[in-house]
């Protein structure tokens, strides 16, 4: 009896490790399965193919005088196209980059020369969405407040952008973004996106 008892215990131990393995394997399968099943649900919330495929926007630059700006829609967001005056360009270039709140990145550099296309210093093209919480800064239409740095002013929480669209004062953390764009029709048009 004693021996059989012992072997029963040993058997049980043996079983236990097998069971542990089966248990862990089942749990792991269930976890992976659960996550894979959840993925389509989460992914369905992300932009759909037709939203992603939103075509690029073309605008004509004819009729925009020096000092004027227009707003166009691209991917459901406004894009500012501003034809800057020589003085505005000078001001944008004169700033010491080290004093700027945002050092910039590839999409939105801090150096004014990199924020425009070479030889097209006049034309500043920006996504017109405040980098704070997404309001549309004022300053494109005539008569709108342009803020302390003569570029744009976001009234929502008071962010001031300069004549290069860089953040200078207020809660916004980053410079206005430069969208991908190119000049078309011998420089009389713009293709955004």
């Amino acid at each position: 009896m004693a021996t059989s008892n012992k072997s029963a215990t040993a058997d049980h131990d043996h079983d236990a490790s097998r069971r542990d393995f089966l248990f862990v394997a089942t749990a792991a399968t269930a976890a992976v399965g659960g996550a894979s099943a959840a993925w389509p649900f989460i992914s369905s919330l992300n932009p759909a193919a037709d939203t992603l495929a939103l075509a690029s926007t073309e605008v004509s630059l004819a009729g925009i005088e020096v000092g004027q700006a227009i707003k166009v829609m691209w991917r459901g967001k406004p894009v500012f196209v501003r034809r800057r005056t020589a003085e505005e360009i000078k001001e944008a270039r004169a700033v010491d980059l080290k004093t700027l709140p945002d050092a910039g990145d590839a999409r939105s550099p801090a150096d004014d020369a990199k924020r425009v296309k070479a030889g097209k210093d006049e034309w500043l093209v920006l996504v017109g969405v405040c980098t704070h919480l997404g309001c549309i800064p004022q300053g494109s239409s005539t008569g709108e407040i342009r803020g302390d740095y003569k570029g744009w002013f976001c009234p929502c929480h008071g962010s001031h952008y300069d004549t290069s669209g860089r953040i200078r004062k207020g809660p916004a953390p980053k410079n206005l973004e430069v969208p991908p764009y190119e000049f078309v029709n011998n420089g009389t048009g713009l293709k955004i996106g």
Binding site: P47, T51, G76
Partner: peptide
């Protein structure tokens, strides 16, 4: 934010959800 919107701004997918 893109996941919340279902797009690149607050738009129809956002309103639906």
């Amino acid at each position: 934010v893109t996941l919340l919107w279902g797009g690149f701004s607050v738009d129809n997918p956002t309103l639906n959800r």
